[in-house]
């Protein structure tokens, strides 16, 4: 039980977000100012009179959590209160990679002393699974529905990790709720750097992905073991660490149990997309040298 993020919030059983949030807050011992974008996390935790937050928390809008965090940091600096705590953003993948990418880029560019955590559940899940820039190819969402002629999302998942690295910020990493100790370590490591930090955490969504709560963490692990979600760590632009994969699994093992990908195994275009997804996994493995 966490005094920083209290039980009784409205997350689904098996929700990946709360694992990421609790581990982050505990790693920083609650010395945190949270800026949260509109989305799942905000809705499950911040209803008036029922806030789950035991740390100072602000929700402003969908697309400005990075800028709001920059403002908090600037205020703490100006008022000589920097030692009060770390400024941390929790934002969804849509808030990060789509609607809020402008304010995020500005925050990176000015290199505010802020840890930005993207909780990546791969679609606008709060409003019922609409595709975002971080939705993977082939996924059946309500705005990229699989139908007779359309096989789900056509484009690739936006490479936000590389976009973050390209800003020249001191620390960038990916992580997964399948490995909570790794999340804690990365959060602690990140705040050792003065300046902007980005950690993207893969968080399964039971309703959007069409899985059972008990399968959320095993599936998150499979995403890593297939190299579809490479776990990487950059310090000052240099790749310093990756999670190696022993006996990399075919992507089907990860895709098959999820309702959002089920159509790929019977759709006329499915085979082509499955091949494309496997190719992405192969590219990831090669690019980051993941295979042992």
């Amino acid at each position: 039980m966490s005094e920083y993020f209290a039980p009784g919030h409205g997350a689904c059983p098996g929700c990946g977000l709360t694992i990421a949030v609790r581990n982050t807050l505990e790693a920083l011992e609650g010395k945190v100012f949270v800026s949260n974008s509109t989305g799942c996390l905000e809705i499950i935790s911040s209803m008036y009179n029922r806030s789950a937050w035991g740390v100072p928390y602000i929700h402003s809008l969908f697309e400005n959590a990075g800028a709001v965090a920059a403002g908090i940091e600037a205020a703490l600096k100006a008022l000589g209160r920097k030692d009060e705590g770390h400024v941390v953003v929790f934002a969804g993948d849509g808030a990060t990679a789509d609607i809020g990418i402008g304010t995020l880029s500005g925050m990176f560019d000015r290199n505010h002393d802020v840890l930005y955590i993207c909780l990546d559940n791969e679609a606008y899940q709060n409003t019922g699974n609409q595709q975002s820039g971080l939705t993977p190819p082939g996924a059946n969402t309500t705005t990229t529905p699989a139908g007779k002629i359309m096989p789900g999302k056509l484009g690739r998942k936006k490479d936000m990790v590389s976009i973050a690295v390209a800003h020249g910020i001191p620390y960038v990493a990916s992580a997964s709720v399948a490995f909570p100790m790794d999340i804690r370590r990365k959060v602690k490591r990140a705040v050792e750097f003065e300046g902007a930090k980005y950690i993207q955490i893969h968080c399964p969504c039971v309703t959007g992905w069409g899985i059972q709560g008990k399968d959320a963490v095993p599936l998150a692990r499979l995403a890593v073991e297939t190299a579809l979600y490479p776990i990487v760590e950059f310090e000052n632009g240099e790749l310093v660490k990756v999670r190696k994969i022993k006996d990399r699994k075919p992507v089907e093992e990860y895709l098959k149990p999820q309702r959002r990908f089920r159509h790929l195994f019977r759709h006329p275009e499915g085979k082509k997309i499955l091949e494309m997804i496997q190719k992405i996994a192969d590219e990831n493995a090669k690019r980051y040298n993941l295979d042992i």
């Binding site: 602000i58 800028a67 403002g71 205020a75 100006a78 402008g102 500005g106």
Partner: peptide, 22 residues
């Protein structure tokens, strides 16, 4: 003193700053 990436960003930065007591 911060030059934001847009007026939208500028106003958002001031939301955070004002809420933190500035």
């Amino acid at each position: 003193y911060i030059t934001a990436e847009s007026e939208f960003g500028a106003a958002s930065i001031l939301v955070g700053a004002s809420a933190a007591g500035a």
